[in-house]
C-alpha cells in the first residue's frame, strides 16, 4: 500500500489525473443505475436486486443492434444515441411487464418478499440472457479514437467522454422531468405519502408502474454505455446491483433531496 501511495504522490503524480478521470467515467455510469434504484426504493419501497441485470440486458440490446447499425454505414456517434433511445424504449416496456407480473404483488409486502422476488427475477434474467447470447464475454468496439495527454501517460477513450456526456444529459433530463412534469410531481408526491397522494386523486398504481418502467429504461441506457466501455456477460449483473445499492443513498438526493422524498427510506 505504501508503495502505491509513493507511486501516486512521488514517482508519478500525473497518475492521479488518470485515476481521477477513470473515477469520473466509472462513477457517471454507476450513478445512472444507482439513481434508478433510488427511485424505485424511495417511491415504491422495493429493493430491486435485479437492478444490475437490467443494466446487463440494456448492454445486450446494444450488442445485438450495434453491428447491424454499423453495417448500414452509420457512424458511431450517431449509433450511440440511437442505441440509448432504443434500449430505453425496450427496457421501459420490459419494466412495465415485470411490474405488472411481479413487482405489483410485492409492493405492500415486507422487505424480504421484494428482495426474494427481485432475486428470483435476477436469476431468471441471467439464465434467459445466457440462453440467447451464450456465456461468452462480449464487447462493443466503438472504434472511436483514444486521446492522449502528458506524453501518452494519460489516455482518454473518446467513447468514455461520449458516455459521460450521455450519462450527464440523461441525468439532467430525468431531474427536470421529476421536478417539472405532472408525472414527476406525482411520483414525488407518492414517495412522500402514498395515502395522501391517493386522497388527492393520484393513481398510485400507475405511478408505481411508471416509476419501475422508468428505472428499467435508465438501466437500459446505463447498459448501453457499459457495453461500450467495459465488457458484458450474462452473469455480471450482480456487480452493478451491488454498486447501485452502495451509490443509491447519494443518488436519491439527486432529484432534490429529502424534501422530494425520492431517496431510499432508512430502516
Amino acid at each position: 500500500m505504501l508503495d502505491n501511495l509513493q507511486l501516486l504522490f512521488v514517482w508519478a503524480p500525473v497518475m492521479n489525473v488518470q485515476m481521477i478521470l477513470d473515477g469520473v467515467f466509472v462513477g457517471a455510469v454507476f450513478a445512472l443505475s444507482a439513481y434508478g434504484l433510488a427511485l424505485v426504493w424511495g417511491v415504491m419501497n422495493v429493493k430491486n436486486l435485479a437492478q444490475g441485470d437490467f443494466v446487463i440486458m440494456g448492454g445486450y440490446i446494444a450488442y445485438a443492434l450495434f453491428h447491424p447499425l454499423h453495417g448500414m454505414g452509420l457512424p458511431t456517434w450517431v449509433i450511440i444515441p440511437i442505441l440509448i433511445v432504443v434500449a430505453m424504449a425496450m427496457m421501459f416496456v420490459f419494466g412495465h411487464i415485470v411490474y405488472q407480473l411481479i413487482i405489483k404483488r410485492v409492493i405492500d409486502q415486507d422487505m424480504f418478499t421484494s428482495l426474494l422476488a427481485t432475486f428470483g427475477l435476477s436469476l431468471l434474467m441471467q439464465q434467459v440472457i445466457n440462453l440467447i447470447f451464450g456465456p461468452e464475454v462480449q464487447i462493443i468496439d466503438s472504434e472511436l479514437p483514444i486521446l492522449t495527454a502528458f506524453d501518452s501517460f494519460v489516455t482518454i477513450p473518446t467513447v468514455k467522454i461520449v458516455s459521460l456526456v450521455m450519462a450527464m444529459a440523461l441525468a439532467v433530463v430525468v431531474v427536470i422531468f421529476m421536478k417539472t412534469s405532472r408525472t414527476g410531481q406525482a411520483i414525488r408526491a407518492t414517495a412522500q405519502d402514498p395515502r395522501a397522494a391517493r386522497v388527492l386523486g393520484i393513481d398510485t398504481d400507475r405511478v408505481y408502474a411508471f416509476t419501475f418502467s422508468l428505472n428499467a429504461a435508465i438501466c437500459g441506457a446505463a447498459g448501453v454505455l457499459v457495453s461500450m466501455i467495459w465488457v458484458i456477460q450474462p452473469f455480471y449483473g450482480i456487480v452493478y446491483s451491488v454498486r447501485s445499492f452502495c451509490d443509491g443513498g447519494g443518488a436519491g438526493q439527486f432529484a432534490g433531496g429529502d424534501r422530494d422524498g425520492v431517496r431510499p427510506r432508512s430502516y
Binding site: 514517482w11 497518475m15 477513470d22 455480471y236
Partner: peptide
C-alpha cells in the same frame, strides 16, 4: 473480484 476493471494496475504499469 469482479474482474471488470484493472485500470489501476495498468496505470501503475505505465508509471513503472
Amino acid at each position: 473480484a469482479d474482474l471488470s476493471d484493472m485500470s489501476a494496475t495498468l496505470t501503475k504499469v505505465k508509471a513503472l
